[in-house]
């Protein structure tokens, strides 16, 4: 069993209107200088076989045409007491 975190975000070059809207809103709060804001998704999951994660991303968690993904393996799941 492995715990994993998958970060999914729009591919470079794909307009991200959510990111742009947030970028425009930040100066209103006095935070100048924030650029290149991109908004994606975070999927956390536990899997029996971490080797499946890549295919899970390719075929469902992300759409490879429009999204990039990064898989991060976390600490092993603590066994039930």
């Amino acid at each position: 069993m492995a715990r994993a975190r998958v970060l999914i975000r729009p591919k470079t070059g794909i307009l991200d209107p959510q990111g742009e809207a947030v970028e425009r809103a930040l100066p209103a709060l006095g935070f100048g200088g924030a650029t290149d804001v991109r908004i994606g998704r975070l999927v956390e999951l536990e899997v029996d076989d971490a080797a499946h994660l890549d295919q899970m991303c390719e075929r469902l968690l992300a759409n490879p045409l429009i999204e990039d993904y990064e898989i991060e393996l976390l600490d092993p799941v603590p066994s039930a007491a």
Partner: peptide, 16 residues
């Protein structure tokens, strides 16, 4: 499109 029967993808409207 998601099923791969048509090319491309549909993204959120630019206007949001």
């Amino acid at each position: 499109a998601e099923a791969g029967l048509l090319p491309g993808a549909l993204l959120p409207n630019l206007s949001l």
